[in-house]
Design a binder for these strands. Structure first.
Lengths: 178, 178
DNA sequence: CATAATGCCTGAATGAAATTCGGCAACAAT
DNA sequence: ATTGTTGCCGAATTTCATTCAGGCATTATG
């Protein structure tokens, strides 16, 4: 009998393991999702139907969540970026706290280990709009304090890279049980 | 004579102002960049060549930076997400600090206002790989301290929304100069 | 008020690309 | 050795991106 894990986090169905060819495809599609299958195939060394099949599988298995247009936030009026540490009374995915995701200024919500409970990434038009968001956060039941880090400049902002980055390889047990 | 602003931040060329129709198009393309122009037009109430023209303009003006595949980080082995506060001796875009962006685990680098200098968003395979990254950060000239917030759960993570979110409208001067 | 110019839209036509199909080679299991 | 499976390629079909020629509203101008 197998134990049902039933994760809270969305899990990528691990039907097929990702191989090096998949990583090359992912890397190319992260850079440019408008590549034709013919060009994509030429870049990774495969035919168009072959890459098409793999991309379909990567989408179906959830590795590729979706294709998205990356929009300059400043072009749509979101000039101000801030990271907000939120201290709460309780812990966990309570409905009250999840209501925070309803605020359209909030782009990310993480529960973190450290001297705070939750970490928010938010974008607003200006400081005044940030104040409005903070007021709504403080009005949320369970929120007791916030600390905001307003971004002055963004030096790097890129979506998830596809390559493995095992610079220091994780040590594996080299012990022989006798 | 006009003053050359010459921003450090990439600037969206403000040829044409973004109107409500553009916002609807952007919102749809953020959700799904694979929409055909016909479907996109039906969704926003426009013909296919019309939306095509607008999308082309949005790309050319830099509002749409690019189309990208959004990849599940866990599917490519990046299980651990952390936000790292970095304290530095100096300030600004020094070459030493910009070398941090060479580390593939680093997804974002912001200089922030608050009790730290810089804020990093990083993804690694595990805690050991995070330790390796921190070791490399400490080896960077100018870095004096770091504080890491390891994400336990991610409740929300979405790319930039297209809509204006002026919930508390920014007060405008109602003064008449006489 | 008339007129011309501008910008933006609609509908058809062309060319390219996505998608599907059948067949072949490599590999694993029986 | 044989059989089944998996993954790939080349060709065919259908859909879509892209372009073009008009039509309508709005605005500037005489």
């Amino acid at each position: 009998m197998t134990i049902k894990t039933d994760d809270v986090q969305p899990k990528p169905s691990a039907d097929h393991a990702i191989d090096g060819m998949d990583r090359k495809i992912l890397g190319a599609l992260i850079e440019d999702a408008t590549l034709s299958y013919a060009d994509l195939g030429k870049r990774v060394g495969l035919s168009a139907p072959a890459v098409h099949e793999r991309v379909k599988r990567l989408k179906r298995s959830g590795v590729i969540r979706r294709m998205a247009a990356l929009v300059d936030p400043r072009a749509v009026g979101k000039t101000l970026l801030a990271f907000v540490h939120v201290d709460t009374t309780g812990w966990g995915k309570t409905p009250e706290l999840m209501a925070i995701s309803e605020h359209p200024e909030v782009e990310e919500i993480h529960s973190v280990a450290g001297d705070t409970c939750m970490l928010l990434k938010v974008r607003t038009t200006d400081t005044h709009a940030l104040e409005g968001l903070l007021a709504r956060l403080y009005a949320t039941p369970g929120v007791v304090a916030t600390r905001s880090y307003v971004a002055l400049s963004t030096y790097l902002e890129r979506p998830a890279q596809a390559g493995v980055t095992e610079v220091w390889p994780t040590p594996r047990a080299r012990v022989r049980v006798v």
